[in-house]
Amino acid sequence: MSSPRRITLKELAAQLGVSTASVSNAFNRPDQLSPALRERVLEEARRLGYRGPDAKARSLRTGRSRIIAVVLAETLTYSLKDAVASELLSGIAEVLDAHGHTLLLLSGRQNASQVPGSSSIADGFIVYGLMASMALVEELQSAGHKPIVAVDFDLGDHPAIHVDDEPACYAIAQHALQTPA
């Protein structure tokens, strides 16, 4: 038994007598519609079982997935428990959320052949920490011309972000010396 055919954005727009842009904006850019029109679109979408624009179709149309992968030098479990890595991931996720992107986590501890194929859909990569093996990073580099940014180590011709440890340690020590006991 087959499931019922899913209604399309174009069909929903026709049903409501509005443009496809209005339906799309109701889901993706609500500030572009009046609250009353947005609620009308969303209510009709719920009634008809329409869950929003198809991300796969948008990806095919635009050539972008809106996914940024973070490749961690350690295992996912370790990185999520580590205070510094966890804060970094939280900050990255906050910025990605604000820009309508999704975060994909990958462990650099995996064999390159074990990395899920979903990494190939990422629009770009943030590589955090020096990898035990550079095989995964090399595979990402050879996979296409997607942006790669390294954090806390240099990665050839790619941009890198480093914490300036010496001035940071100096500032911490100065603060500790000035704090009354």
Rank of each mutant, 00 (worst) to 15 (best):
L12A: 11
L106R: 01
Y128F: 11
R40C: 06
A69H: 04
S118N: 11
P159R: 08
D123R: 10
R66Q: 08
A14E: 15
Y128G: 01
A176W: 13
G129N: 08
S118P: 01
L140N: 05
L12K: 13
A176I: 13
A13E: 06
P147G: 04
D154S: 03
E139P: 03
S24T: 07
A57I: 06
A36E: 15
D97N: 15
F153I: 00
S120F: 01
Q114T: 05
A160N: 06
F153R: 12
T75W: 00
T102K: 05
L130E: 06
Q32Y: 11
D123C: 02
V115R: 05
S90P: 00
V23M: 10
Y128I: 05
R64W: 07
A122G: 09
F125C: 04
S59P: 02
N28W: 11
L155Y: 04
R66P: 02
E138Y: 01
A21M: 12
L88K: 10
H101A: 01
A160L: 00
Q174E: 15
L80S: 01
K10S: 10
L37M: 14
D31T: 02
K81N: 08
S142T: 09
S19F: 08
V23A: 10
E11V: 06
E139T: 10
M134K: 00
S133C: 00
D164Y: 09
A21I: 08
L88I: 09
G100M: 09
D123F: 11
V149I: 14
L106Y: 03
L42V: 11
L103M: 14
L130K: 13
S113R: 07
K81L: 13
T62V: 03
L9N: 05
P53E: 13
E166R: 12
V127G: 04
A168K: 11
P4C: 13
V41W: 13
A85G: 03
V18P: 04
P147I: 12
L48W: 14
A168D: 06
R61T: 13
D152E: 08
G17V: 08
K10P: 04
P116W: 10
